[in-house]
Amino acid sequence: MARQVLRRLALMLATMLAASLLLFLLFELLPGNVALSELGPYSTQEQRDLWLVANGYDRPVVIRYLLWLGHFVIGDWGNSRLFMAPVAQIVGVRFENTAVLGFWFFALLVPLSLGLGTLAGMRQGSWLDRAISVLCIVTTSIPPFASTVLISAIFVFSLHWLPGTSSMMDGFSYRQLIMPVMALVLYDFGYIARITRASMAEVMATQYVRAAVLRGLPQRRVVLRHALRNALIAPFTLLMLHVNWLISGVIVVEYFFAFKGFGSLILEASLGKDLYLLEACTMITVFMAAVTQTIADLGYVALNPRMRRA
């Protein structure tokens, strides 16, 4: 087990290193881009050259990459041109907001999707199963950018129950959090629920569940003790990998609701060509993806005694 953990951690580090190299090559291989991004399009060539020398961009690529990486690791992520402030500071604030959003997203998504999926999978072919399946397939067909519009039309414009933006100008407000969380969950729960259903249906059809029934165990016990645990392995792995997906969804939803979060920050950095900010944001997403993927892998092994090796 310890070997597997170490191997997985090493793989995670390697992935992050490779991603950082990729990003560096993409954005900073040509120093001219950096200067352009930092000084803006109205700077002269002479200004840019001076800036480059002053900031050590005349050194060889390898040295520059190592320095860049070193700065990155110690949290020195440079200054944002758009926000006129250290990148780390801005990212910190924005990330916190999105973390709150993400927490409530998962807090709603997990019970909803696993519950519906398990119910449907337990009684395959019943009307409940079919109703859940239809609900899931329809909701997953409404992309976040459409669902934000549609639910705003209902709850904001028609019913006037909820605010249409979530900029949280006057401090944090749960009322403003409801719409973004709803939009994200609406698109996503169907997918997880369908995977859970398939997994549950598969487990319910296994020999060992049948064997448990034929040993005369009560239905409740068969489902709770024998089926559920094995059925939830696949959705668990998927939920972990979902952090990665969440970032994509968060970008759309935060943009729509003007939520000052990490997702809209990525978009602003990219549209505003704020290089250091974009680099930092991307590395953070890669970091999160790599970590959650590692957790998913290790969790899969931990949940699956067959995968464990001494």
């Binding site: 020999q207 064997a211 040993r215 645990r229 094995n230 949940l303 699956n304 067959r306």
Partner: peptide, 16 residues
């Protein structure tokens, strides 16, 4: 009535 299956591995819950 007790039952014994052909494939013992499949009849045992792998995670218990």
């Amino acid at each position: 009535i007790g039952i014994v299956y052909q494939e013992a591995m499949a009849a045992l819950n792998p995670s218990m």
